[in-house]
Design a binder for these strands. Structure first.
Length: 463
RNA sequence: GGCGCGAUAGCAAAGCGGUUAUGCCGCGGAUUGCAAAUCCGUUGUAGGCCGGUUCGACUCCGGCUCGCGCCUCCA
């Protein structure tokens, strides 16, 4: 197996080889849990879940960590307004996040460290940075001194002069140099805080990730992922912290940096600050989670993807076609199935997660299934189930898929009522009373129920 | 101001220096009591614009136009 991954550090595809051939370590930046996540937040989760599945197929052990940021100024303010602890406040959204991501068929990560459970590791790392001459204390803050890191800027490809020239940041008076960033900041009595060598305070934004990586995954990890917007400053600063806190020798802090492109709305980035976002939670009221997942996989992960109702409708139609070929096929994935199309699918995924082509393979298999009969058909259906599993798709029963209806929709016909009308219609058909049969078809159609007659009986689906 | 990305048919979205991406939508045929699904065929002059390299470019190179992103919380 040769796996190619695009590395943001080198801006090109590289052959992936883990530092330890028996174990891959991967860290992906998780959510700051102060509200429901939007569909743009779901893109990296789906992308790296797909990578996680791929890695698991080819390496004996994969440790995938995704953090939960449960302390930050937005959380602090919201928890205070609610008169509850940041932990209680944050945990509600952390649970919602896990539910939402689960509904998109994302596997749980191996580890989900919480920032507030790892304050000690952050303090340790900050102390190491001070000891190594990369950080300094000033007015209760601890700051990383960027000029002490000759490698600074290597991920985001920018140099200090450019940054200072274009800086729109106010420079705090206690900074030695404008680009220095906060590792630790003091907390007033009404803010969450932890005791530290620099007084009661709380961590800066970037330190949690590098500290938790060091603590849970080690000095060097194989893959670190996240959205493009994290390249600067978040990941650049993580590199500075994670590299300067200890002797690294030849090995980097992170060996492969991967970043997904944005989800756009009308060509503009979806973001919380622009307010042009849709929450995953809302979308799940209208669409199956699998449709959302499929939609996110239709574009290559590094490309922008314009999000729209049409995108989801197209994804739904495509999945309808695939599920139609899986009627009566068992759900369990048969690990022993072999088929050239599976090799083709693997080849595409191994080429920096070429999911659009991987989806094309699913459709090629569907075409074969539609033409096949008997055992050959069953074998191909098993193949398609397995192919779908590689992408986190096609893991449900076809009948359930076609009978699905939006959670937000109420008052429609129940399954039993529909079945009763179908019985009545079939009786009418037997009696050659096609007028009544068509009337029932029409009546159901008006309710969004489509009937399909076949020699094996009548099936129905919700539109 | 600095740095970077993109432009493909009705819609979405890929690979590839010459041979069908794929899905949805459209059209014709088969099948069907009707319908759907499926199969066969097929169209919509596809590759932002202008040059260059080449026997040949959507695919490589240069310029232009337009759009977008990061430099500030952000996936």
């Amino acid at each position: 197996m040769t796996l190619y991954l695009h590395n943001t550090l080198t801006q090109q595809k590289e052959i992936f080889t883990p530092l330890n051939p028996n174990q891959v370590t991967m860290y992906v930046c998780g959510p700051t849990v102060y509200n429901f996540v939007h569909i743009g937040n779901a893109r990296p989760v789906v992308v790296f879940d797909t990578l996680f599945r791929l890695l698991q197929r080819h390496f004996p052990k994969v440790i995938y960590a995704r953090n939960v940021t449960d302390v930050d100024d937005k959380i602090n303010a919201a928890a205070k307004a609610n008169n509850e602890s940041i932990r209680d406040f944050a945990e509600r959204y952390a649970i919602a996040y896990r539910e939402d991501m689960g509904n998109l068929n994302n596997l749980p990560p191996t580890l989900e460290p919480y920032a507030t459970d790892n304050i000690d590791a952050m303090i340790d790392q900050i102390q190491a940075l001070i000891k190594n001459g990369h950080a300094y204390e000033a007015e209760g803050h601890v700051l990383f001194q960027v000029s002490t890191d000759s490698q600074y800027g290597k991920l985001s490809k920018r140099n200090m002069d450019d940054m200072i020239a274009g800086a729109r940041v106010e420079v705090a008076p206690y900074k030695k140099e404008p680009a220095d960033f906060v590792l630790w900041k003091p907390s007033s009595d009404d803010l969450p805080g932890w005791d530290s060598p620099w007084g009661r305070g709380r961590p800066g934004w970037h330190i949690e990730c590098s500290a938790m990586i060091s603590k849970h995954l080690g000095k060097t990890i194989d893959i670190h992922g996240g959205g493009m917007d994290l390249i600067f400053p978040h990941h650049e600063n993580e590199i500075a912290q994670g590299t300067c806190c200890h002797e690294h020798g030849q090995e980097a802090f992170v060996r492969y940096w991967m970043h997904n492109g944005y989800l756009n709305i009308d060509g503009e980035k979806m973001s919380k600050s622009l307010g042009n976002f849709r929450t995953v939670r809302d979308l799940l009221q209208e669409w199956p989670g699998e449709v959302i997942r499929y939609a996110l996989l239709t574009a290559h992960y590094r490309k922008p993807l314009d999000f729209s109702g049409d995108l989801l409708a197209n994804a739904k139609s495509s999945l309808d076609r695939l599920y139609n070929t899986l009627r009566e096929s068992p759900l369990a994935v048969d690990g022993n199935v072999r088929h050239p199309q599976l090799d083709e699918l693997e080849k595409h995924l191994q080429d920096d997660l070429a999911t659009p082509q991987a989806l094309a393979v699913l459709h090629a298999l569907a075409g074969e299934i539609n033409k096949a009969q008997g055992d050959e058909k069953i074998r191909l259906q098993k193949t398609l189930r397995k192919a779908g599993d590689c992408l986190g798709l096609l893991n449900q029963d076809s009948e359930a898929w076609f009978k699905w209806q939006p959670a937000g929709k109420t008052g429609g016909l129940s399954d039993a009522e529909i079945d009763a009308l179908i019985v009545e219609r079939n009786d009418a058909k037997k009696a050659k009373n096609f007028g009544r049969a068509d009337e029932i078809r029409k009546q159901l159609k008006e309710q969004g129920i489509v009937l399909e007659d076949s020699k094996d009986g009548t099936r129905w689906t919700r539109e």
